[in-house]
């Protein structure tokens, strides 16, 4: 890895239109009240998929603890652009922890410090003034780097395409209240369905396994009455798709659960394993004999 040092990115937030927030000219955040902090960033830069890539260091100053981590990167990027340099590419969209786009490994932990948060929900108050912060992209064969900190997670879409749905064409549904679902069951399905597909589980797993992602989807659909017709097929097809995409196997270390921003439980993986065994047994001819009266 070639470590080039790019110091001197002083992050001057100098433009005259900053400082005043939204809400009219009357609004003015008193800059003296704001705690100023600075950090050194060690960032993975890679121009494109075929590029070798390496770490580059940046000094980011005049930050405040109330900034989000991504706002800090925005500030760094604006300075880079003012100097005519190319900004650090990273994915983010909703900036409120639900779209699943943001995806940085911060100091060795996907989504950085804090439990149950995405990268965009990490704040600078989690870091000490003067800290050196290492930022890397998700690393997995199935998530190739596109540029800098952006990776291609379309493998997840293809896994969903293999079976992550109920095959109900529009218009063919029965009345919504025709199948009763207990509160507990709906809650359980929701707990699994809360997955945002960010891929942190893969990023942290030493085997780069996508089991937690697949398990969450299978659990969500397989426990609901509407999901029963495709239960077996879905389980087998999604697991096969996962293997085909080049994700590793689960060796039950549960790191995935610890970094999951939605705190999806590894219990779902046990469920998935159970569903898989069940599907294998049922499809191997050992199904119960149904006699018609």
């Amino acid at each position: 890895m070639s470590d080039r040092t790019h110091v001197g990115c002083g992050c001057q937030r100098g433009a005259s239109h900053e400082g005043a927030g939204h809400g009219g000219a009357a609004v003015h955040v008193d800059e003296r009240r704001v705690n100023v902090m600075s950090v050194r960033l060690r960032v993975w830069r890679q121009k494109h998929a075929g590029d070798k890539g390496g770490f580059v260091e940046y000094d980011a100053g005049r930050l405040t603890p109330d900034m989000s981590f991504l706002e800090m990167l925005d500030v760094v990027n604006e300075d880079l652009q003012r100097d005519g340099d190319e900004p650090i590419a990273f994915d983010s969209d909703c900036r409120e922890g639900i779209c699943g786009a943001c995806s940085l490994v911060i100091d060795g932990v996907p989504h950085g410090p804090g439990q149950g948060v995405t990268t965009c929900q990490v704040y600078m108050r989690n870091f000490s003034d003067g800290a050196t912060i290492t930022i890397e992209p998700w690393r997995a064969q199935a998530f190739p780097v596109v540029r800098d900190l952006i990776v291609d997670r379309s493998a997840f879409d293809r896994i969903i395409g293999a079976g992550g749905y109920n095959s109900t064409n529009t218009g063919s549904a029965t009345d919504a209240n025709s199948a009763l679902i207990s509160q507990a069951q709906a809650e359980e399905a929701f707990d699994a369905a809360a997955c945002i597909g960010c891929g942190a589980c893969v990023a942290t797993c030493k085997n780069a396994s996508a089991m937690l992602f697949v398990a969450a989807k299978v659990k969500h659909l397989n426990i609901l009455p509407q999901g029963q017709p495709e239960r077996r097929q879905r389980t087998v097809a999604m697991l096969k798709a996962m293997d085909d995409e080049g994700f590793g196997h689960c060796t039950n270390e549960y790191e995935c659960e610890a970094v999951c921003p939605k705190e999806i439980s590894v219990e779902h993986i046990a469920f998935l394993n159970r569903e898989y065994l069940r599907a294998q047994v049922l499809s191997s001819g050992m199904r119960p004999v149904i006699t018609e009266a």
Partner: peptide, 12 residues
């Protein structure tokens, strides 16, 4: 109706 058939876990 459509969303429930798809498995949307609405509150119950």
């Amino acid at each position: 109706d459509q969303c429930v058939a798809q498995g949307v876990p609405f509150a119950r």
